[in-house]
Nucleic acid binder design. Structure first.
Lengths: 230, 230
DNA sequence: CACTTATGGATTGTCGACATTACACAACAG
DNA sequence: CTGTTGTGTAATGTCGACAATCCATAAGTG
């Protein structure tokens, strides 16, 4: 023991839960949030010294945070030149959605094989229709993601879940970058219940086709508005 | 200009291409190789100071190298406790193979849709039968990987390729850890030509079934010999 | 003896400084 | 004027030292 008394407080009541979150994680979270929200656009250069001064931390956590984002596929390095937010090509957007389709089809298949309960999915369906009626766009998007997230989780496959989450990061970014067309999405809300019904009926072919079409429609939302270069 | 002359040599003829490979990458490569070869078994602790002294570099490159391996899914961190080679559970092995199956099925479908040329696959098939006749186990394994690698590449999908490569890292590790049963593999070599034939015939259902069964057989090779804990 | 409470050692987390590299721009020869 | 050659600057790459944290073990108390 050197500096702090540290006695008492067997459990910090509730407030100030813990700050044991490493700086690099905090920095990574902030940067990721900035990228996913579109505030840091693809192609933007990430200068370590600038970020370090801006956030009042050393360069080491910044470097490690950027590397975390690199692992997420959101940042790319050009050795000795610098790091930048990974440009989003139309091809990459298309690939992201096609891979997502494969993941969700896999999830549907596994759900049918394992006979997972479908209550969660029904709840999210209800939440989505409620949000649609209330004209709450944010809630609608959130409910949609919750539905798909639940779908993947019910597949009971950790690797699939991790891969899907990683992929969905890019989808977040894409959605933030395109100009949202709200009207289309509300009608897509109606796609979910039939999927759940097909699952309940144990109709693999129908369920796969429905989820496949559904994700493909979502992909089609993206006009190739995203044409980043540099 | 400070120390090095650096004139002449508009192009270093061929020898000594460059050593501009960052230390962290060198360290990461060494560690990855050690893990994939089984020399660093799952559960082994990775102590930064020890590795730093052992490799005569500072801790910074070691830390960043370990983080790279973490991104590869080969290492996991327990904050303030240490990093260790990620334990391989039977479940994770199964999940790895099942995800691989989905990837390869996706590749097959895309190859049929795009009408990719199949010459490469045929070459690797020949190499495999040749290796089988020569009783060269190493070459057999290499040819097998080359075949599947080519299959994925022909799908012309960068994200799929990256995901597959990442997944295959774990497969390398798994193969290094299990006691190899050579005899079974030689007979599996025979699975490849029919796959290529089905692709040539444009028979999607048959090709998908064949590649699916094939990868599933490879998975079955693993008795759950791998029971790492800690 | 059981249980709490210090304390020491080992390991990761963070920092600031220095070394190395690449690029851009100016100086200069032809 | 054009091409080349030197420099300077800004960024990343690397290093060693210090701070914070956790774990195990021992000391103390009822």
């Amino acid at each position: 023991m050197t500096t702090k008394p540290m006695l008492a407080d067997p459990m910090p009541p509730d407030i100030a839960p813990i700050e044991n979150v490493p700086l690099r994680v905090q920095v990574a979270d902030r940067l990721r949030s900035a990228i996913l929200s579109g505030r840091l656009r693809p192609g933007t250069g990430l200068v370590e010294t600038a970020l370090a001064e801006q956030m009042n931390v050393s360069r080491a956590p910044i470097r490690e945070a950027i590397q975390i984002l690199e692992n997420d596929g959101l940042v790319e390095t050009i050795a000795y030149k610098g790091k930048r937010v990974k440009p989003l090509t139309a091809r990459e957007v298309a690939e992201t959605y096609s891979l997502r389709e494969v993941f969700e089809v896999m999830a549907v298949r596994r759900i049918l094989e394992n006979g997972a309960p479908l209550d969660l999915l029904r709840e999210h369906c209800d939440a989505m229709t409620a949000a649609a009626e209330a004209d709450d766009f944010e809630a609608l998007v959130a409910a949609d993601e919750a539905f798909h997230h639940a779908l993947i989780m019910l597949a009971d496959h950790d690797l699939l879940l991790a891969s899907w989450k990683n992929l969905y990061l890019r989808i977040h970014q894409i959605m933030a970058l395109r100009n949202r067309d709200e009207h289309n999405l509300t009608e897509v809300a109606g796609n979910h219940p039939p999927i759940v019904q097909a699952l309940a009926d144990g109709d693999a072919d129908r369920a796969v086709k429905l989820i496949s079409d559904h994700t493909r429609i979502l992909a089609a939302f993206d006009p190739a508005t995203i044409a980043q270069d540099l």
